[in-house]
Nucleic acid binder design. Sequence first.
DNA 1: TAATATTTGCAAATGAGTTGCAAAAATACG
DNA 2: CGTATTTTTGCAACTCATTTGCAAATATTA
Lengths: 135, 135
Amino acid sequence: MDPGAILAANGMSITRNRVNILNTMKLATVPLSGKEICQRLREGCDKSTVYRTLNTLYNKEVLQRVIIDHEVKYALRSGDRPGNGHDRDHLHFKCSSCGKLFCLTETEVGDYQLPEGFIKEENQFLVIGKCNKCR
Amino acid sequence: MDPGAILAANGMSITRNRVNILNTMKLATVPLSGKEICQRLREGCDKSTVYRTLNTLYNKEVLQRVIIDHEVKYALRSGDRPGNGHDRDHLHFKCSSCGKLFCLTETEVGDYQLPEGFIKEENQFLVIGKCNKCR
DNA sequence: TAATATTTGCAAATGAGTTGCAAAAATACG
DNA sequence: CGTATTTTTGCAACTCATTTGCAAATATTA
């Protein structure tokens, strides 16, 4: 879906900022923080607008929120980016030397058995270690 | 080990604040944030002292750092609290309704296969969902 | 296109965590 | 023990990501 369609489908006004933000998300190969999105937006956009937009898109379930270390990051849900999307529950790897983030999409994350009465909504699984360049 | 012994073993001066902080950690059943530790300390202790102490104890490997959602929390390593300690790599559960945190110590967390050349140092695995009371 | 509703930029606020510094407490040592 | 030296503490001020109020700008509706 193109940005305009995503916005329309979610009852949001189609604005230049929102389209730019969605295009930035489409190009990303890893989840991005609000700050990183601000930096990637060529046409300046106030940070308050960026954060407001991310929150709205998250609440509309267009974006997924991923916590990496203790940074909040966002990625398009796969429904909105077929073949290249970011599913809930996949594994992330963060390099403790260079800080680079990797999506380990090939690794299936299994569900763990929870105590009686507990219901899983989402897995946040992160492995920290050394990447192949920093090892 | 009692707080005094832990401090001495790590070459740290034994002070009232540090003993209080370690006792608070000993009583905790889940990892605590700096703010939560401040709140639990009956005898007031400046937050800068709390955070400084947590950092020092973390660097000395007395405490483990656990990231829950995007909050940094600390727990005593199991070596310092036999039978009740907090090992690396175990699974945590956070309730999306009441916010309560659970340590699922009975659930073993397996290692995932990483791409060639990647080395695991630590697993941060969190399941988000509804606890047995909020379901 | 005018009227109404939504979004934006700005500046100021928030909140967790950190830092410099002088005073207070601990430790070392005679 | 008591004093000198080292370490820790509280305070206030700072940082940095994120949020908020509000009036101006932009989108949508009719």
